[in-house]
Each structure stands twice: as C-alpha cells, then as structure tokens.
Write a protein that binds this DNA or RNA. Structure first.
Lengths: 345, 345
DNA sequence: AATAGTTGCACAACCGATTGCGCATTCATA
DNA sequence: TATGAATGCGCAATCGGTTGTGCAACTATT
C-alpha cells in the first residue's frame, strides 16, 4: 500500500525494516513461527509491516525451495460446452477453497497438444495432473509417472492412472428407457431409434452404445449397426450424418439418442432448416445444456454430476487409491423427463 | 525416457553426465549457447543427452533467476457461455503459439474474488494480467501497478489500464435497427420494445442502452424508463423481470433486446412455460450461441469478435500503448439476420 | 617468435524463500 | 549460586537455473 517500488519487496527488505532476520520473517509469513518459537509480539509486528508494505511471497522461490509448486494442473478438450466449462469452474472453485492454485489448458482433443500441455505442466512442477477427456490418457500418465508426478483421469478412463468417470452405460440405459417409454406412449415405431454422435474409439461412446443396446434388448428390440452413427462430436458431422441417415431410410427416426450437446446443435439445425418440428421426434441428449432445455422443454438430458466427480477426484488427490487403475463411476442425473423420476431409482 | 528417477534431473546431473559444466548445459538448453560460443558439437551432445534422459527445465528456478515467470494471467467472470469460453480458448491458443504459458481464473463477477485471484497471480509473478469483464478493473490495475506488473482490460473498460472492448453502443444500435426493421415489416407496434438484462452499473450495459435509445430516437421513437429492465444477467432474474413486465403492461413486448445469452435462457424458458411461441416476439440477443441459433433461426445475435479482440490485446502486450487509459473498440458482427447484411456496412 | 585476437568453456555469484542447527538469554529448580 | 531446561531468534546452506567475467588454448598477424 505504500511506495510504488519497482523492485518487489522481499523478506530481506522486511527483515531490515523490522530489525530482524530473513529466516524469522519467512517463518512468520508462512505460518511456521510458533513451531520456531518466534514471540507473538514480533510475529505481529512483522505481519503488520508486511501488510503495510504490500509484501507478496514470491511463489517461484517458495516452490523452488520447497520442491512443491502448490499448483494443480488440468488438461481439458474444450471450454465451450456446459459439461467441460462446469468441470473447469468446479475444479477451480474447490482448489481455491483449499488454497491451491490451478492451471487449466485446452488441448482440443488432439493427442499432440495433450502431450505438449502435459510437458509444460510438468515443467512447472504441478503437484497433480488431471487429464479430462484425454484422447490418450495413458501416454500422459506415463509422462507423469516418469516425472514422479501423480496423474488422474476424469471423464475418460485410462489404465495407467485412477479414473473418475460418469456411469455412461447405466446412464445411457436410463436415457434410452425414457425414450422408449415416450415412444410407447406415443404408439410410435420403437425400431426407428437412432444413436448419433461421438467416436467409436472412445470409451464413453462405446459404453453409451452398450447401454443403448441393452435397454432395447430388454424390451425385445434388436439394434442394427445402422441404428448407430458415431460420426464424431462436431455439429457439422452430426448434421451431415443425420442427412445421410434420412436419405437412406427415407424418413426421420422416431427418436434420437444424441451423444452430446454439440452434436445436438447440428441435429436441431438440420431439422429446422428442413422445416421439421423438433417436437415430432423424441430426443434425448447425453449431456446437459440449460439453454437447450429452455428452447426445447421436451428434450430429455443426462446431466453429468460434475460436483460429485470433482469431489471424488479430490478424495483421490488427498488419499491416492491403492490400485493405480482404480475406476470410479458417478451416476448422471436425468433431466427434463418427469416420468423418469420413479424409474430412475 | 530412461530411468524412473524420483529426484528430477537437473542441469548439474546433465553436466556430470556430459563431462561439462552447469552453465554450459544451461546455455545449451535455453538456446543462448551460440551467444556464449559453445561449440555446435558439444551443444548437440548435450541436447541429445537431455532428450534421452527426459530432462525438463524447472520453470520455478528459471523464473526465480530471470525474475520473469513466462506466465500470462487472465481473470474471467465465468467459462459457461460461448463468449467467455471462446475468450479463454483463443487467448490460450495465441499464447501457446508464442510459447507463453497461461493461467486463467474464474472470479464469478465478485470483486473480492477478483482481488484475491489477482493477488495470487501477482504472487506467481505473471508478466501481464488480463482482466476480463472485471467488476472493478481499476482496483486490479492499481494492485498490478504497485507490483510493477502491466495489466490490460478486456470486455469491460477501466481507466487505469488499456482496454479492449466491443463496440457496444454501435453494436446495440445495429441490433436495435434490425429489430425495428422486423417490427416495421410485421407492421407491429414499435413502441413495445423491451431492453432486458445486464447491470445498470456496468459500462457495457450502459453503452448498449444508449445504442438502443439512439437507434429508436433516429426513428422518432422515445424510450421510456420502463422500456429498460437491467435485472442483472442471471436467467432467473431475467425470467422474473419479464414476468413482472408482462404483469404490468398486460401483454408481451413486440420485440426484445436481450442483453446476454444467459438472460435469453430465462426469457425463453418463461415464454415456453407460459405457452407462448417464441416466434411471436422479435428477439435480438447481444451475444452469440450456436445452439440458440439452431433452435431459433429467427433470433438475431451480435457475435463479439473474440479473435480480433485477443489479437489487439497481444498487440498491446507486445507494445504497450503510450496512453495507459487507451481504449480500443472492436466491432461485433450481426448474425442471423440476412436483411442486415447491407445495413451493417 | 612474439603479440593480438578469437574460440570454447568453467567459475561463482546471484534470484528469494525455507529450514536444520546452534547460540545467547531467561527462567525454574536444587 | 550453580545447573538444566525452555525461550527467542539468527546463521548459513540449499533449491536449480542464469549470466557476468575470466582464463586457457588455439589461430592469425607482423
């Protein structure tokens, strides 16, 4: 609050001002002064001085000496949907609550960018690295392992580090059940249900497909390969895939299991452009977006339980699981389908 | 790639392995070896050794010695809309392209959190601090000034640091023009246009209101205080505000200028819950969301030009403006209104 | 062959905090 | 009045890079 020194104030400056020593100032400022038997009086004087002079600890120096950065790193595919942005926000909020600093980096679902981001995070000596939705989590876990840094997977599981993920199969089963219930209520053809979006090679998509298949099987419905279109997540891809599907089948599907809000964007756009009423198709989306809910109240969505997922993640940060390949599934919540409330239990 | 040492490899280790000295290894690894006249042969040998042993520079040590962290900091209100998430992504991508590391922190439009985040960023000795949509940018600029760190404002302007913002007034004028054009085409009552959302105390909202007012004035339309409802951004607030407005006026507005996608969410939800057709009201939104566009093709949106804004920001990071209170306005683009294409020029 | 310039590298002092250790006082006890 | 313990604090080494400076060895010049 006082002088606008361009050289930042250090503990050495404070020590001089307080007629004390750097080690004492350090102990006072980092809270270890009681253990070091610094008198309360002196501690108080130094704290006031630091406050008055606007001292701020040089975290680089502290990190270097302590060999701990006090930073938690996270890599993330993107920020631009509610699921990932909420992951970033909740993660940051929880870390802040614990006085830990966070660094988040978007890697655009690109393995090369993932590796590069991980390399930087390791150079900054993050204490843990959270890999969210990583395309190649094991590669990163291996890098972290070599550097002696713990890594954790979120959203997509790996085999080389503990993973917190959504209960994709069970969630998909419930979402599919909700779609089928609606179809029955409408007396529509339950055969024409389309699963669209996602990547055939990613774990979540495979699990959701399996849940989709199982839910149908339990009602005696077969699932043909053409019922499933894993066209990647992008809106344009979903749009083109739906167009192709409709061209092939000659008509719209009766219901759709849309594998992300970004795919939903393409689907809805294509339907509107083609003059279709979105309400004519029963739609479920495995992800949640309140704006979509506002526009389309009959849309059924699976909202992944981000707060719980992050909480479990921090549990493992606090106490690493014995098994490095531990996998924890967190149940997502169905939204927008009142009829489902009893079924979900 | 070799041993899984738990102690991280340092330049001292490499120096021993290479029969060289730490200073030489350092120069080789940080690229200053030519200036230090290290032979190409030795440099090559050391680089290969470092690669083989999986060396990674301890950035804390480097930052401490250089007195520069190589980190760019940004504070942001939220990630969860397309505007802010895109700011974070584009900012990070551009920084990455330049080999600079970034730290982004969400501060929930809360001045206390803003200050706390800034304090942490300064403790980590970020080289610049970008304050995006800060409620109190000048307070942060002052903190940065005292620490001898340059700060820049984005989205919301301040008086104590250079600011890159959207051309809110002109953008609002154009958006309002588009609404009024549609109203005329529909021969609807141009008096019943509602401006809704935002904060009366924030600069952007004030500017947009002024643009709104001017556009109407130019067509001979007066703007009453009741035509403007700055109920904050939250969906629930917008929902409640619209309900109150309709209760007061006895009918829906003919058109609405919605001041953010988050407010739009509340508006649309209220309309759907009340059984209204969103197409009955001519709507413009000052912000852009592709999912909203997909659901509501007649919605007119102002898409803020994030890439240009970030580019200008980096221009000022490279070459600080002479005037610390410089302000640069970047024109947003109107989306979803084909008729506007010629008017926009 | 003596001198000057160049090449190639190592020494050692930092950067700012942390922390094991030790030394002077003061206090309690015998 | 000695003696042991407790109190209060400072010294100095250390974390891992960076960088000004200096010194050999070698090359070019006269």
């Amino acid at each position: 609050m006082s002088s606008e020194q361009s050289r930042k104030l250090t503990i050495y400056d404070l020590a001089k001002l307080a007629n004390s020593s750097p080690s004492t100032v350090s102990a006072v400022l980092n809270g270890t002064w009681q253990r070091r038997r610094i008198s309360r009086k002196l501690a108080k004087r130094i704290l006031e001085l630091a406050e008055r002079e606007g001292y701020s600890t040089n975290m680089q120096a502290r990190a270097l000496r302590r060999d701990r950065s006090g930073i938690l790193g996270m890599i993330l595919p993107l920020y631009d949907n509610r699921y990932f942005s909420s992951i970033a926000q909740v993660f940051e909020a929880e870390a802040r609550r614990r006085g830990i600093f966070t660094i988040v980096s978007c890697t655009n679902r690109d393995p090369a960018q993932e590796r590069e981001a991980a390399r930087m995070m390791l150079a900054y000596r993050v204490e843990h690295l959270i890999c969210t939705g990583a395309t190649d989590p094991d590669a990163i876990a291996e890098m972290c392992g070599a550097a002696g840094i713990a890594s954790l997977n979120l959203d997509l599981p790996g085999t080389a580090a503990p993973s917190v993920i959504s209960a994709n199969r069970e969630g998909a089963r419930r979402l599919t059940d909700a779609l089928l219930d609606r179809l029955e209520a409408r007396r529509a053809d339950a055969a024409r249900v389309l699963f669209i979006g996602g990547r055939a090679e990613d774990h979540n998509t495979r699990e959701r497909i399996e849940g989709f298949r199982q839910a149908r099987e339990r009602r005696g419905l077969a699932t043909a390969p053409t019922d499933i279109v894993t066209c990647d997540y992008a809106a344009e891809k979903a749009q083109a895939a739906l167009e192709a599907y409709v061209g092939r089948e000659g008509r719209l599907p009766a219901a759709m299991f849309v594998n992300s809000t970004i795919s939903l964007e393409g689907i809805v756009r294509w339907l509107r452009l083609g003059g279709h009423d979105v309400n004519d198709i029963i739609m479920g989306c495995f992800d949640w977006d309140p704006l979509a809910a506002a526009f389309h109240p009959r849309l059924i969505m699976m909202r992944q339980d981000v707060p719980t997922m992050i909480a479990r993640l921090f549990d493992w940060i606090d106490v690493p699981p014995e098994d490095p390949a531990s996998r924890l599934e967190v149940m997502p919540e169905i939204v927008g389908d009142p009829a489902q409330v009893r079924v979900a239990g």
